[in-house]
Design a protein around this nucleic acid. Structure first.
Length: 595
RNA sequence: GGUCCCAUAGUUCAAUGGAUAGAACGAAGGUUUCCUAAACCUUAGAUUCAGGUUCGAUUCCUGGUGGGACUACCA
């Protein structure tokens, strides 16, 4: 409709003022809630053609539209805004068209679908996942769903940072203090067990550092000189040299961690098509770096460390291989990127990684460009904001991290508590109840995280539990469950919920508002895919649920005596339910049939 | 020091350069013989400051203040 109106406005300007204008000058938006109308034309940009006041210009165009556009029923002018009212008959037939289409995402499909690789999660194997990883995983997974809905071929991928000095720290501490403890012997989840030894290492190191500082060393010197740190570095060297004992221990402890991660991923409902391991890609990265050195793209210092000079690109000098020949994070990221492109030939590769690594990804892209990979143009850092606590950033060293598994368990618990208090679960089996708590608890968590603009930092206050009322996931789920309940009742009362709608039907304002919102679904999805923002989808779903609840409150559906009107309201409700389910599905949320 | 990001009701979040800045939680009040009250409806309550561009600025530009991130032979 916007398109038709815009064209008509161009026509109106031509006819009224005898000027040809670009359609892009025509600004048509949805009319704000407190004004009468469906669409609003902002006339300010057209004043230089009409050479009249905003009010008169708006009046001219409004008059033209009413005369020449059958579906424009009336208009009103407030300041420079022309509010256009579309006939309810048009809205009704618009809805009929929309509801008869099978494919909900059809109108959201991108003009040029491509192959897009999305990397998310990217955990280190020295400690369990925390709330920051939850945001990462939910954003990454949702992004994949949204891109798929828009017709792209998406490869969900993960890079597991399974090697490096941090792993050695856990390994070393376990060797020294572990007494052979295993997940089985301790009953601890594997990733938590390994995390425990990482903490042990940091504590012991802290003592050694304090001791050295008393002898007059600086913080940095002390950390470097501490015996534990030296041992950890030696271990890394042994690991890279393929020392059997070290590799065995590494494999064992990593397998514990993977079992733990798999469990957390399962709970969160995220998955991957292809998992890369840094231990398998870093050598490849090393080769690329050494090759580039031969080709004089990089340079080597006297201590034999290898660097790239990116000062021309406005960046700094960056280390790519340490003087002892071991790889750094950047080395493996170079290798992984090249490997991925060889294997999948992506058009785009999106890295879902926190904004604290903005610099890292600038460097990565520049290095790849410098080495000569034209496809590096398609690398994109999806930089999302940190999750902060009231006292600031989460710090694992200070034990202020919110553990992912704990939080998920708490959410399910809260869901259970709230559900039992409301006491609506008569007729649910034990299994159905557990399933519901899952859907609601995770729904609340996922919506809480995803409704926030990904670019922004967000705050999580552990003291205040995540809500189940108001602007929340369960609110949307509740709306859906209510609609399903109406359909169940229709069935038991023998009401046919799928009769052919009449070609003409008089419908009300509440219904039109709902239709308008429903019509905006595809555009919301494509915008979310273009701006990489699941938050747009989340907020849309909330708006739609809110609008439907008003409709549900004000209008009777099954109690409506007119069979045609009743059928229309049922269809409107059913379609709303489909859109809500599809919408939150893009956020990785599931809908309960009853709650 | 350098580079970058952020600042909106008491709180957590919204707002393609457009009208009277939206929600939710919290506060005060109301709605149930009626399809699920995890709902609906009232009321009170906000753009960090100073300039600039513009017919029009929460949005763009400059500066101040406040907060955060990065600037490792960590990841």
């Amino acid at each position: 409709m916007e398109k038709i109106l815009a064209r008509k406005v161009v026509e109106a300007v031509k006819s009224l003022y005898n000027v040809d204008i670009e359609e892009s000058l025509v600004q048509i938006s949805d009319t704000r809630k407190d004004f009468t109308g469906d669409y609003t034309l902002v006339v300010f940009p057209l004043l230089r053609f009409s050479k009249k006041s905003p009010e008169l210009t708006a009046g001219d165009i409004g008059g033209y539209l009413r005369e020449n556009c059958a579906d424009v029923r009336e208009y009103n002018v407030i300041k420079g805004f022309l509010n256009i009212v579309i006939s309810s008959a048009w809205w009704y037939s618009f809805f009929k068209d929309m509801a008869s289409q099978k494919e909900l995402f059809a109108r959201a499909v991108a003009a040029k679908p491509g192959t897009i690789m999305v990397e998310y999660s990217s955990p280190n194997t020295n400690k369990p996942l925390h709330l920051g990883h939850i945001r990462n995983n939910l954003l990454g997974y949702s992004l994949c769903k949204i891109l798929e809905a828009c017709g792209h071929k998406v490869i969900k991928t993960n890079i597991v940072n399974d090697r490096g000095i941090h792993i050695c720290k856990s390994m070393l501490a376990w060797q020294k203090k572990g007494n052979g403890e295993t997940p089985e012997s301790s009953g601890m989840k594997g990733d938590h067990l390994v995390g425990k030894y990482y903490v042990v290492f940091e504590q012991e190191l802290k003592l050694q550092v304090a001791e050295l500082k008393e002898k007059g060393l600086s913080e940095e010197e002390a950390r470097n000189e501490a015996p534990l740190m030296k041992e950890a570095r030696e271990m890394l060297l042994k690991w890279e040299a393929g020392d059997r004992e070290t590799i065995e221990l590494w494999k064992t402890m990593n397998s514990w961690v993977y079992a733990g991660f798999d469990e957390t991923y399962r709970l969160l409902g995220v998955e991957f098509d292809k998992i890369y391991y840094e231990s398998e890609t870093y050598m490849f990265g090393k080769d690329i770096v050494l090759d580039a050195l031969k080709n004089n793209i990089l340079y080597q210092k006297e201590d034999s460390s290898i660097w790239v000079d990116l000062t021309e690109e406005g960046l700094d000098n960056k280390l790519l291989l340490r003087s002892d020949g071991t790889a750094v994070y950047m080395t493996q990221d170079i290798g992984t990127a090249v490997l991925r492109h060889q294997e999948y030939g992506f058009d785009k590769c999106i890295y879902v990684v926190g904004n604290e690594q903005n610099y890292h990804f600038q460097v990565l892209k520049s290095v790849l460009q410098k080495i000569g990979y034209p496809w590096s143009e398609g690398l994109h850092h999806f930089s999302y904001g940190m999750v902060e606590l009231p006292e600031g950033k989460m710090k694992s060293r200070e034990g202020t991290v919110v553990d992912a598994d704990d939080l998920i368990a708490e959410m399910k618990d809260s869901a259970k508590k709230v559900s039992l208090e409301l006491g609506k679960l008569t007729g649910f089996s034990g299994e159905e109840k557990e399933d519901l708590y899952d859907k609601l608890g995770l729904g609340a968590l996922k919506y809480f995280i995803l409704k926030v603009d990904p670019k922004k930092n967000m705050l999580f206050n552990p003291a205040e539990s995540i809500d189940f009322n108001g602007n929340t996931g369960p609110f949307i789920q509740y709306t859906y469950a209510r609609i399903k309940s109406v359909f169940r009742k229709a069935e038991t009362e023998g009401i046919d919920n799928d009769i052919e709608l009449p070609s003409v039907l008089d419908i009300g304002d509440k219904e039109i508002s709902l239709i308008k919102l429903l019509g905006r679904f595809p555009a919301t999805i494509s915008e979310a895919s273009e701006t990489l923002s699941p938050a747009l989808v989340a907020n849309y779903c909330y708006d739609l649920a809110k609008e439907y609840n008003q409709f549900y409150h004000d209008m009777s559906i099954l109690g409506e005596p007119d069979v045609n009107v009743r059928a229309f309201r049922l269809k409107l409700s059913g379609y709303t339910a489909s859109v809500l389910k599809a919408g939150v599905g893009l956020l990785g949320m599931e809908m309960p049939e009853r709650m």
